[in-house]
Design a protein around this nucleic acid. Structure first.
Lengths: 169, 169
DNA sequence: GGCTGTGACTTGAAGGGTCAAGTAACAAAA
DNA sequence: TTTTGTTACTTGACCCTTCAAGTCACAGCC
């Protein structure tokens, strides 16, 4: 296909074992979390993330473009998803009064209730799948490791997103 | 939607920060790895995993059902994917002589060359995205953390399987 | 005011994944 | 030997995501 190039830096035993373990998470966890949300709430993880982001915003309203960043998805994907959420009556769209190019998405009362009803199960799943198997020390280490790797994935850090008191570092 | 239930065990600051960091990986890394393989080799990560698994087997042949476990996917998914790989001339299927219910998948010479040409770039991507940002200590910790979480995901461990540079070790 | 360029979405088609049936091969009972 | 059941795989329909246009709103220049 292409040239052989310089001798690749193969992984040693320790590295391969570590990557294999991480890969188990990376390719298995999304499916597990989606499964719980689908089963208990009939919602995808991305849909939940979108609604959760709105629910944590004062006024429960955000511009589509910013919401896309928060939810870590493309604008196109968000557009399709919000259309579905709108059909369910959980979200409403409206042009931004201050600039008609923007569209704002607002969580409806029904949407708020959906989030409130869904959140506990989701948090419980995160706890059982991710946190419970780890000691406090592990949790600290995971945070450090996760932060380092995430930084490399999206230079500005996918951290900008994520609603929460970012008290870190 | 449902009953309030017992008070959920919400995440504290440390836990939320750790989960947020991990989520960055879990929802970002697959896309990044797929992107590299798609761009440089026109192949999905799952397709690569399937071919890599075959390439590491003596005889480059495996039964579909075992291959599905190795590649961490459903039999249905594997069936669709192998059909595509067969169309490309990288894999061939044949009924197992010893039991007609089984189907065996065999990596062709062209498939072998595809793996050999693709592996270095993939390993390099894993290195850059996952290993390089970490110290040796972090790598050890990641292995431990990954192992613990993976165990909870699929009891028997998704460990059995794994792609890695064809030739070495 | 009309033109042009850019930004912010929206849309439709194409491709991959999952789920639910369906098929085919074997094994064991009748 | 036929029937029944199980295992292993395949297929088709539907859903979701991506990609490549297309649309609409505004801002700046003439």
């Amino acid at each position: 296909m292409s040239d052989p190039g310089p001798e690749p830096r193969w992984l040693d035993d320790e590295e391969r074992a570590a990557w294999r373990a991480m890969a188990g998470i990376v390719f298995g966890l999304p499916a597990a979390l989606d499964a719980q949300l689908q089963r208990d709430a009939g919602v995808t993880h991305f849909e939940y993330t979108v609604m959760a982001a709105l629910s944590e915003t004062p006024g429960r309203t955000l511009r589509m473009s910013y919401l896309a960043i928060l939810a870590n998805g493309s604008l196109s994907r968000l557009s399709h998803v919000v259309k579905r959420l709108e059909r369910q009556g959980w979200v409403e769209r409206a042009p931004d009064p201050s600039d008609g190019r923007y569209t704002t998405a607002t969580l409806t009362e029904a949407g708020w209730e959906k989030v409130v009803a869904t959140a506990p199960g989701h948090v419980e799943a995160v706890r059982q799948l991710v946190l419970d198997p780890l000691s406090k020390t592990h949790v600290r280490q995971m945070r450090e490791i996760g932060t380092r790797i995430s930084h490399g994935l999206s230079p500005e850090g996918s951290c900008a997103a994520w609603p929460s008191p970012t008290s870190d570092e």
